[in-house]
């Protein structure tokens, strides 16, 4: 947590965190896989900007490196990899919708309110109710919940991968504001780890198509009991 940021810095952080939350809600409001992908890329760029801003105002020069790598990996390489998977599949949107986009946005809004209540309570423990920490915690928790919502109500393999990445983005965003001094090594390895995860998913999706004949988790119901 940056000690006493200037008002300008605080508002910049707030703006960027809220922007990334907004993009997460956009993902809930669509059922086109391409839109999820664009939203995810945009979210990663916002997070990269946030890393750079925190690095600048908080005097953590190593965060510039993180920002550059976030932009490269989360903003470009991961979306490219996922775009390649989408291109190979015959599916370009969610077909069986459990929760209509409008309804899932409402549920998402409820999640944000819940996350805010928890964040205020937690930040209150450190007497930080009036700082950007509340916002960071809110966004971190609500992106977590939104990610789980996407995992639960979306069935296409791509939506599920992106749901997982939203979960990770939420945590990553929170760490930039709450614990910018977290050891560089760990952040680097986590970034790298994400790349490996998506590569694994790519291979697995290909297997799913050839061996299970589907990429929708609705069809995966052989194993029960």
């Amino acid at each position: 947590m940056i000690q006493t940021p200037t008002p300008l810095a605080s508002s910049l952080f707030s703006l960027l965190t809220i922007a990334s939350l907004l993009v997460a809600v956009v993902m809930l409001g669509s059922h086109w896989l391409k839109n999820y992908l664009y939203a995810f890329a945009a979210e990663s760029w916002v997070i990269a900007a946030l890393s750079a801003a925190v690095g600048f105002y908080g005097h953590y020069p190593e965060l510039y490196l993180i920002a550059a790598l976030t932009l490269l990996f989360r903003g470009l390489v991961l979306p490219y990899l996922i775009w390649r998977i989408i291109r190979r599949l015959a599916v370009d949107r969610e077909i069986h919708v459990i929760l209509q986009p409008g309804m899932s946005m409402v549920v998402g809004a409820l999640f944000v309110m819940f996350a805010f209540a928890v964040a205020v309570r937690v930040a209150g423990e450190f007497h930080l109710e009036l700082t950007v920490a509340v916002l960071a915690l809110t966004v971190m928790l609500s992106m977590k919940l939104i990610g789980f919502l996407m995992l639960a109500v979306r069935h296409e393999a791509i939506s599920q991968i992106l749901g997982l990445l939203v979960l990770e983005n939420g945590i990553f965003l929170g760490t930039q504001i709450l614990v910018p001094g977290m050891p560089l090594l760990i952040e680097l390895v986590i970034l790298f780890d994400l790349l490996v995860i998506v590569a694994c998913f790519g291979v697995l999706v290909r297997y799913l198509v050839t061996h299970a004949g589907t990429t929708s988790s609705l069809q995966l119901k052989r194993l029960v009991g």
Binding site: L164, L204, R222
Partner: peptide, 28 residues
């Protein structure tokens, strides 16, 4: 490489990755 093992692998990586992302949040 059978349909069942694909399904198992997919469920495995999805459920466990989502689960341990909570552990990462806790760690942070």
């Amino acid at each position: 490489r059978e349909a069942e093992s694909m399904e198992a692998a997919w469920k495995y990586i999805m459920v466990v990755s989502a689960g341990i992302s909570l552990a990462l949040l806790g760690t942070v």
